[in-house]
Amino acid sequence: MATEYNNILSPADIYSDARGRIVALPDFPAAHSMIIESRVGAVRGNHFHNDESHLMYVVSGRMLYIEQQADGTLSTLEVRPGSAVVSPRGVAHCTVFPEETVIVVLSDVNRSGEHYEEHVFRVDALHHQVDLTGLYDGPQVNP
């Protein structure tokens, strides 16, 4: 069973007026940024990075973030629009998307093009080791 924990980051600030909103993402030393669009049931990750950490900000949809703690226990966090989570260096993690979701990812190293899979170390499927009942019960889509 997954342990619930609360490591959700809120925006640094939100500016609103008649034109709309400007959302300042949480402070993070970004060297690269990406927008990732995921379909219902998509599973991403199941890996760790020795030399990288990244912030994942949910723009729309919903993301289940699963992280393996140093003692081997798994923690699950439900991240909703307007919230972010940081995946630290050396920590195994994966994401499951229960609905169509758009996230912005800020990385502290360049992961563009051919660099995307550099320094990625795959792990056994974390999402098969936790109980997602009540958070997501549908099919899971892997590459």
Rank of each mutant, 00 (worst) to 15 (best):
F28R: 03
G45M: 05
V104Y: 04
P11T: 02
V102D: 10
P11Q: 00
P139T: 13
D124F: 09
E52N: 07
D124V: 15
A70D: 07
A42C: 14
H119L: 14
E78K: 04
L64T: 00
I103K: 02
Y15M: 12
G72L: 05
P88M: 05
I8A: 02
S87K: 07
S112H: 14
V104W: 02
N6G: 06
V59Q: 14
S87E: 04
D17C: 08
F28L: 00
H93T: 04
V59Y: 09
Y65I: 13
G61I: 02
D27T: 13
D27F: 13
L25S: 05
V105N: 09
A24C: 15
N50H: 12
L106G: 03
F121H: 08
R80D: 09
Q69Y: 14
S10F: 11
H47I: 07
T76W: 14
I66S: 00
I14A: 08
Y65Q: 14
Y116S: 15
G20V: 12
Y57M: 00
V40Y: 08
L135S: 13
C94E: 04
V123E: 04
E37F: 10
R44I: 09
G41S: 03
S87Y: 14
R44H: 13
H127R: 13
L132S: 11
T95N: 12
H128K: 09
V120Y: 12
T101Q: 13
H128R: 07
T133K: 11
Y65L: 11
A12Y: 09
L55I: 01
H127P: 08
R122Q: 13
V104I: 11
M63V: 11
V79K: 01
Y136V: 08
S75G: 14
D137C: 06
S75H: 12
H49R: 05
Y57D: 00
